[in-house]
Simulated scan of single mutants.
Amino acid sequence: MNTNLTDPELLVEYAPPLPPAAEVEPLRAIVEDMSFFYADGTQALKNINMPILDRQITSMIGPSGCGKSTLLRCFNRMHDLYPGNRYSGKISLFPDGQNLVGSGTDPVMVRLRIGMVFQKPNPFPKSIYENVAAGLRVRGVNNRKVIDEAVEVALRRAAIWDEVKDRLHRSAYDMSGGQQQRLCIARALAPNPEILLLDEPTSALDPIATSKIEDLLAELGREITIVIVTHNMQQAARISSRTAFMYLGQLIEFGPTDQVFSRPAHPQTEQYITGRYG
């Protein structure tokens, strides 16, 4: 057998089964035999099996280009924005068991059930209020009182209400970077999603803003299922209960965060965590 642990051929031999956590923990979603192909035929994900545990934070770690963000964007069908991309396998969302990547599933409705926050804060060129109300309007909510209440609740959940309550109708571009990212979290929370996805949400922020976002996520993780992609292993260790390590489009290891970081089951994981490659 090839003994070079960073050789892609070794990874082809390793196909982890669905982790046992799925058998004992309540699930919000489950990824089964998930593969993804870009329009040119390139396979970016290879037979991923992973549970997403209810009201817990799951971190996905791994070197750049390993498929973390690609997998994250499967959950809310972001890849559909580019013609020719193709999914294989299933992502089932509970309790109804709907296949999020099924051909008969409406991507717009998926994005209302699965909220997403990106690496760089991306507020709309609108007021703070209208940013948060956007998802509600897509859902067809037009009652001003209902929207007012939902906007306040979302901003409170994102721990930014006290900072913006007196300037709701000012441009979101007047906010600091950290505030804009919390606004984007509030915008994602307003339609009351079942899962919140975050793709490197603090990589563009300073340490103080990063700390505020992490504190916010730890609080939100008690009431909503969160999946976060991060290059910051200390961040994954601080905020997540489960961690998935990916490499070259494959899931190498999944388990309780403390176990993955202190007692990794696969040598590839240990190599990455100890800094032998990145």
Rank of each mutant, 00 (worst) to 15 (best):
D258L: 13
M109V: 14
Q181A: 05
F37Q: 11
F245V: 14
P191M: 04
K120V: 12
A21N: 09
R222F: 03
R156G: 11
K68R: 06
T3Y: 00
R113E: 11
I30S: 00
R144F: 08
A29T: 04
F245H: 09
D206L: 03
D166K: 12
L53P: 13
A29R: 04
L136E: 00
G102W: 06
Q119F: 01
S240V: 09
L217Y: 05
L136I: 02
C66G: 02
T3A: 06
R170G: 09
R182Q: 05
E13V: 12
P201L: 02
N85W: 03
E214V: 04
L136Y: 02
R111Q: 10
L217G: 08
F245Q: 14
E149W: 02
S176T: 15
L45Y: 04
L220P: 13
P267I: 07
P201A: 03
N76T: 15
R170K: 12
T230R: 02
N122A: 07
G178D: 07
M78H: 11
G102Q: 05
N143L: 06
I160L: 08
Q268E: 13
N4E: 14
F75D: 10
G140D: 05
G135T: 09
Q181Y: 07
G177Y: 10
Y173E: 11
Q179A: 03
A204S: 15
P51Q: 01
E25W: 00
A29W: 09
L18Y: 03
R170E: 15
L112P: 14
E223T: 12
N4V: 13
P191R: 05
T230P: 02
P125D: 06
G102L: 07
I48T: 07
D33N: 14
F261Y: 09
R157V: 11
G275D: 08
I252D: 10
L251D: 15
S171D: 05
R28L: 03
Q43L: 03
R156L: 04
D162P: 12
S59V: 09
P264K: 02
L248T: 04
V227N: 03
Y173L: 12
L183G: 07
A237K: 15
V108K: 07
T3D: 11
I128K: 00
M175E: 08
P193K: 05
V110M: 01
V117H: 00
N142Q: 13
